[in-house]
Structures are given as C-alpha cells and as structure tokens.
Nucleic acid binder design. Sequence first.
DNA 1: GTGGTCTAGACCACG
DNA 2: GTGGTCTAGACCACT
Lengths: 131, 131, 131, 131
Amino acid sequence: MFELDIRSRKPIYEQLVERLKELIITEVLKIDEQLPSVRTLAQQLTINPNTIQKAYRELEIQGYIYSIKGKGSFVSAANDSQNTEKLHKVKNDLIKLLSEAMYLGVTAEELITIIEEIQASIGGGIEHDQN
Amino acid sequence: MFELDIRSRKPIYEQLVERLKELIITEVLKIDEQLPSVRTLAQQLTINPNTIQKAYRELEIQGYIYSIKGKGSFVSAANDSQNTEKLHKVKNDLIKLLSEAMYLGVTAEELITIIEEIQASIGGGIEHDQN
Amino acid sequence: MFELDIRSRKPIYEQLVERLKELIITEVLKIDEQLPSVRTLAQQLTINPNTIQKAYRELEIQGYIYSIKGKGSFVSAANDSQNTEKLHKVKNDLIKLLSEAMYLGVTAEELITIIEEIQASIGGGIEHDQN
Amino acid sequence: MFELDIRSRKPIYEQLVERLKELIITEVLKIDEQLPSVRTLAQQLTINPNTIQKAYRELEIQGYIYSIKGKGSFVSAANDSQNTEKLHKVKNDLIKLLSEAMYLGVTAEELITIIEEIQASIGGGIEHDQN
DNA sequence: GTGGTCTAGACCACG
DNA sequence: GTGGTCTAGACCACT
C-alpha cells in the first residue's frame, strides 16, 4: 500500500505526504475516513513514528487531513479557499514543466493525449461532490 | 532579473538553476551566448561565488550550459541523447502534476489553452540555428 | 587505505572518486554497505569535509552510491540504464588507451593476460546478493 | 586535420597534445618530420600561439618531440627508457579502465575482439575512426 | 579576467 | 549524528 523508497533522495516524510495525498485525491481514502494511527503505521512501515507524525502534520497544514486529539487523524473535505491557493501554485508548476517538456521536444499533440488519458482515468471513479 | 528568495526552503543554487533553465528554454539566452561570469553574478546578487558556481555546475551536468576554464560559461545546444533521458523524467512529473491539477478542478480545455500559449511563446524563436 | 597525493595535479576529490570507485568495482565495498561518514573520513584523511562531500556527490551522480540525509552514504546497486551510457564512454577511452599501449610495444598476449587477471579478481565475488 | 572542440571541458592545449600524440603514434607524423610552426598552427586553428606553445612544450617533456632553437619542432624517435616509464603508467590506466569496463558488463571476449581489431588496424595502415 | 579547487567554520534538515 | 547548503577568503590553471 505504501511503497516507500528508503534509498530515495526524497525524505521519507515527503514520500509519505505525496502518497497519502494521492490516496486522498483518488478517493481511495474517503472524506472523514480515519487514517491509520501514527504508531500503527510506524510499526507497519518500520520507520520512526516521528517521521509519520511529521507527514501528518504537513498534510494537516496543507488542508488534506484534520486531527482530533485523542481520536486520530481524518481525511478532510476539500476546502475551496485552500484549493484556489493550491490551484495557483499547481498551475505555475505546470507551466514550468510543460515548457520544459515542449523544449525537450514533446509536441502539443502528445501532451493533449496525455491529458485525455488522465481525464479518462480520473473521470471514471471520481464524482467530485464538493461540500 | 533574478528574483531570489533568500528565505525560501529551496536552496539558492536550485532557484538559480531553475531560473536560468527558464531563460534558456524561452531563448532569452541564446545558444552559445555567454552567461554572466561567476564573480559578476555573485556580486550582482550579493551571494557567494561558490553558490553561483554550484548552480552553473548543475546546469552543466544537466546539459544546459558548458563552461570553459579561462573563458566563461555558455548556453549549450540541446543534446538528443540527454534529452530522451530527461523526457522520461519530465513526463512522469507531468502526469503527477496534471492529475493533481485536474483533481483540483482544472478542466482539460484550460490545460489545452495553457499548452497553446506555451507553444506560441516558445515555438516562435525555436530555430536552433548554431552561432 | 586511501593514498591521497595532496601535491598531485589531480584534484583531491577526483582522487577520492577514483579510489572509491575502485573499492566498489572490486567489491571491497559491497552493495548497500555504508561508506564512512563525510566528517569521519574528513578527519581520517585530514582534509576538509566539503571536499569529501564533493567526491560523494560526484559518485552519486555517476550512480555508484546514494546518500540519505540524516542516515549516511551507501553503495548502490549497478543501474542498467546508466551503465549503457557509461559503457560507450569507457569503450572509447579503452580504444585510445589500448592503441597507445600497443604502440608502446605491449603485445596482444600481454593484454589478454591482464584481462584474465582482472576477470579472476572481479569474477570471484560478483554474486550481487542483496543483504 | 585538427578537430579541436572549443566547447569541451578539456583544455585546448591538452586536446592538442592528445591529437599530436595520436598522429605521432600512428606515424602519420614520421620520425624527424617537422611539425608546423607555432605561429602557423595558431593562425590555422585561430587560437592563441601561447596555447600551441604550451602543447609543444608538454610534448617535449613527454619525449614525443624535440625542438631546435631557430629551426622548429620535430618528431623524436621513440626512446626506450622513456617508453618503459610510460608503459608502466599506461598499463596502470589500462587496468583501471578494463576493470571498470568489465564491472559494467563488458565480457572478456568483447575486449579480446577489440584488441584484435586494434592490432589489425595498427599493423596494417590505421583506420582512424573518430570518436 | 575566467572557471575550478580547497579550507574553515556556521547553520539547517532529517531520523 | 547524518548529509546538505552557504559564506568568506585563498590559491591555481587557463586564455
């Protein structure tokens, strides 16, 4: 479920954040669903609990989850004001990356094909009902 | 010209690499054009020459520039064998980012518009004529 | 263990890279084995930690080791895609050097003997068994 | 005749030394044959005469040529005592490079084939395929 | 004047 | 304690 690459240059907690974001975005983890506890996950992945906690804290800051003391961490519903912020950032990154790709010779056609594929793969399982 | 955020979590040299790549990709810096010398740029940005050099070295490894002792650093022509490698990496990043963007509500139409804009801004001058 | 020539024209960090490569190739350093820490080695060799780090960074780029912040540097398993690249380069160098050697009077027989010796010294331990 | 890569990381004078060595080794330049004068060559290659001179001086030190004041520079006959020295160095380099090649997966058979090809090309008339 | 190497010493991020 | 970034300042090699 969590494929962490202990050898990667990318910090473990970042890998965790990324992976969990993915699970939330693809709605494998549904809204208000409880995440595994820090200790459980730490044991499961045999990594330091502090690392898990750092990842959860980061996700909370980014608005993907919320934590309730004594109960646990839960997937939070998408929040519009946060989204517009994120959207801005993502678009900027996208422009950079698209520029680089096209500079390296990817054609607009190829990119559009990629977009359509992603659209298909997301469109299938995501209903996108905002709160 | 170079907007460095000294407080950012992102290392200065990485910001430099990114910015210079941008200038090369958009052909503000043309092939074989000389970059500002390590010392000059360091003075201009009031950062340490070693930091500039680290950025230049990284750009050289990535194939965007070449440096000659005693002469200076120059924009290098795109290299096919390196590109195919980079393409693979860039495409992967792109898929991740596009997925995230579309989850956040960016429509395929918007993306295509972005692509067309980029194409226009790059496509114009991309003759790649040697010096 | 590390015979550095501080007076040599060849940079210290390059000497280090070369020596460490040798130790990895001959499998004195096994896959996933931890290298001495930057600071430790620096103290041992009485050279600056930055110099060690530069060597380690170079080895990482060349695919011989991987470094993890907070954990250390480790020998990495050989990577095929990088290898094919390097192979091309090495073969070219080899042709040049072999030509020079044979011009200087080394016979084909001698060269073959050398090759067999190397094969013996490497071939023995090359099981590549993960720990 | 001299294909210098002004963009290469390798200093120009080193490229010159290497290329001239090659011409001497392959006997394109015969023993006691006169080399082009520093000025002529500088003009021909449109590079600084100092650079040529540095290359010639290096070749003289390595025993490949000799210079006579007021007359010019000439290819020197191979000198045994120098050769044995060089042989030692070349053999060492060769062992390193062969080790690396075999570590990267070149088989002994391939290497022997390469050796035979070189032997043929030297023995015969020298085919000189550029890298 | 150019890039490249090295040192000494400080501070940060990670686990 | 680990690697990574940055500074300040020195010296070398090349053109």
